[in-house]
């Protein structure tokens, strides 16, 4: 294969808890390639969230190296990291994290506020993204007027607005019922088929079944890295 999108070498992360040093990550090696659908699994405290924060440029590794699209992240300034998050990564959170009392359209354009995209293109781009997640008819609705699944789809549209290299989803189905969760997973699978790299953090094994690769963390170490031989297809499981 070609150069990996993400190249993690001996990544360590240490936190200080009072006088104690807690190693959240104890040296992880990992390559993620363009177009993969990776699920990061593990119980709480396993280090999976820490791993996600590092991959998402929200935090910096204490030791080791992480290269994103060939760029070493530890050398970047806060502003440069912000720019990477803005341009290269789309985030999807468990609690959607939409701005309240703000229309779906304005929520989706939020990342553009911090980009160099000319303002004239904002609306058309946001509309396109909302249409691609099936919310073309609800662009003026506020989060309070949308169901959980619809809100998560607005969040996904927001993640897509800058055409990122990777979508990072943190428990995206955690706040949704099973059926709606399936819809969201179908959307992720569809995006993956269109070529988007997707990194999904979850503690539910059945959600991880939708991914093409499963990474399992325990006590700050990567304990298993396996190809998923039987990928569940969310679209086949009763999603209208």
């Amino acid at each position: 294969m070609s150069e990996p999108l993400l190249r993690v070498r001996q990544a360590k992360k240490v936190y200080t808890m009072g006088d104690e040093l807690v190693w959240a990550l104890k040296g992880v090696d990992l390559d993620i390639y363009q177009g993969e659908f990776v699920a990061i699994m593990g119980s709480s405290g396993s280090g999976k969230s820490t791993m996600m924060n590092l991959l998402g440029c929200l935090d910096i590794a204490s030791e080791g190296s992480i290269a994103f699209a060939g760029q070493e992240l530890s050398t970047l300034s806060k502003n440069e990291l912000a720019s990477v998050r803005n341009q290269r990564i789309g985030f999807v959170f468990q609690q959607f994290n939409l701005l309240p009392r703000t229309s779906a359209l304005d929520n989706v354009t939020l990342p553009l506020l911090y980009s160099n995209v000319p303002e004239a293109d904002w609306i058309s781009r946001a509309k396109q993204c909302l249409e691609s997640v099936g919310l073309g008819s609800r662009m003026d609705h506020h989060p309070g007027q949308l169901s959980g699944g619809q809100q998560q789809r607005v969040a996904i549209a927001r993640a897509l607005i800058n055409d990122p290299l990777m979508i990072l989803a943190d428990e995206p189905t955690g706040a949704l019922d099973t059926h709606t969760g399936l819809e969201v997973m179908a959307l992720f699978q569809q995006l993956n088929q269109q070529g988007k790299t997707i990194v999904l953090v979850t503690h539910e094994p059945e959600i991880a079944e939708f991914a093409s690769r499963k990474l399992t963390f325990r006590d700050g170490e990567l304990i298993s890295d396996e190809r998923n031989q039987h990928i569940r297809q969310a679209a086949d499981e009763g999603v209208a």
């Binding site: 985030f91 939020l110 506020l113």
Partner: peptide, 16 residues
């Protein structure tokens, strides 16, 4: 704070 976190996650610089 969460809104600030979100804005930072989607690319807001500290100055923004």
């Amino acid at each position: 704070t969460r809104e600030i976190g979100l804005r930072m996650a989607v690319g807001a610089k500290p100055s923004d």
